[in-house]
Design a protein around this nucleic acid. Sequence first.
DNA 1: AACTGCTATAGTTTTAATCTATATCAAATA
DNA 2: TATTTGATATAGATTAAAACTATAGCAGTT
Lengths: 280, 280
Amino acid sequence: MDLKSLNYFISVYELKSFSAAAKACFIAQPSVSAAIAQLEQQLKVTLFIRHARGVTPTEQGEKLFPLAKQLLGQAGAIKNVFSEKPLKKPFNLGVTRGLGVARMSLLLKDFTSAKPNVELTLVPHNENVDARIILKDELQENEQYIAMWQEDYLLALPYDHILALQDSINIAQLDGLPFIQRTPCNAWNHLQDTLAVAGVSLDVRAKITTIDYAVGLVHAGLGCAFLPAYSEIIQRSDVVFRPITGLQLTREIVLAYTTSTKAINNLKRLARKHAQQLSE
Amino acid sequence: MDLKSLNYFISVYELKSFSAAAKACFIAQPSVSAAIAQLEQQLKVTLFIRHARGVTPTEQGEKLFPLAKQLLGQAGAIKNVFSEKPLKKPFNLGVTRGLGVARMSLLLKDFTSAKPNVELTLVPHNENVDARIILKDELQENEQYIAMWQEDYLLALPYDHILALQDSINIAQLDGLPFIQRTPCNAWNHLQDTLAVAGVSLDVRAKITTIDYAVGLVHAGLGCAFLPAYSEIIQRSDVVFRPITGLQLTREIVLAYTTSTKAINNLKRLARKHAQQLSE
DNA sequence: AACTGCTATAGTTTTAATCTATATCAAATA
DNA sequence: TATTTGATATAGATTAAAACTATAGCAGTT
């Protein structure tokens, strides 16, 4: 298993086709065929079901994809570590909780790379800022905004949880379930209200502030959690996300600003780009 | 850049010798020489200074080592993902905050893999448990323990912070420094006491519960933090850890238990093994 | 000074990746 | 229904890369 064959795997996965992947990777189709077959042999799993027209990933293929993506991303990051370094200049960005460190890092990395003279400082979102990334609920009257990310709240389950076999979960099935409570969180309050009406109670095993840690504990088997299902936690193959029937909660994340400077316009552009990328 | 050449790099780095690495990797020395030269050309950096007898890593080589190690570790983990799966059976493990999700995951993965009939549940450390992993300070009278991890509290700095150029930081240099406060944390209280005596005050920019998030914000440039410097955060190349002169604080993490069952003995063995590994 | 131990270079051999050609199969189209 | 199209798999050839053996060159040790 090497980076190149994983790159071919990712390409096949995304394009659902050996020949398309071969084109994308500028090699011949039989090379892709052989590389995937070799990878399957090395990992002792079947990664794709071959059809007359294209391929579909197996469960194992689905599991490998985010892992391969991450590994290649990290390899790319290693290469980046050794390139040039820019100078800096203050830009205060307010951030609210639970935005997702990884996607924020990608955005902020782009922002600071695109303008080498910008020195970013992250501050709590209720301080004096140049711009801020917050929940739409948190917008103030003097602020304009652009939409960034929108996420449904879903039930996070360990991948081997019995309920993970269902496409969705009904309220009654939550009764007595070990649960990780995220607090403070409006959605949690909504969930509690809905459960109370239905006469359902949860077995709260931990109270956690950060989404990342909540996901980590779901994975470790501590219980389930009700979380905004954004891309970087959905991509985890070890945690499954399922909608709760009759409970539809969404949060919207926006870039808020009061005046448009050059740096803010640049950030707006990047925010749109990153919002678009993550919705694909 | 591929996994194989990074593996050779790691071997050279650890053995400080091309020929020793060649032996360890079961290839000829000139192949190692060529592979490292190729890697240096690809990354456009010099990784090792060649001596008549052996090599020493450059600053860039030092920087690449943890990154390469992590990448290879992750690649190995991908391979592990596709091996067999065991059945389960309850074992309640209490865990205190700030243990480090990654190293805990490795320990717990080993634990659950070694005994396929054990179903691990993580619970807060003050509940009824089979065993718990806690700070030594948190030990109770009826508990025995084995030592696991010991960590000095160090100042975490963004890698490009001016203070990062020093080997250690004196108290006066902390005055007015943007800071991420970790709370609740005994070491923070000690730090505050020491600073108060010295007439030094910090510019606290955020209050964070989790160590991981604190490190994330240090990296993002929000400020510095005073954190236990355990392996997985030390390995980050984007955050530098420095001792504070005249301030020596250490925390000890232990595996605590009241009775010895088979599963606990197995966990004890693994805890020792993991403690040993992380001290190398 | 001679010996030892190391890295680098040169040229050769081996291995792996990739190529072209084409068989086979299923889906789409006329 | 027959034909065409588009896809993956297999076979054999070609190319590129990895690794080899041999040895030069240099510094350190005895």
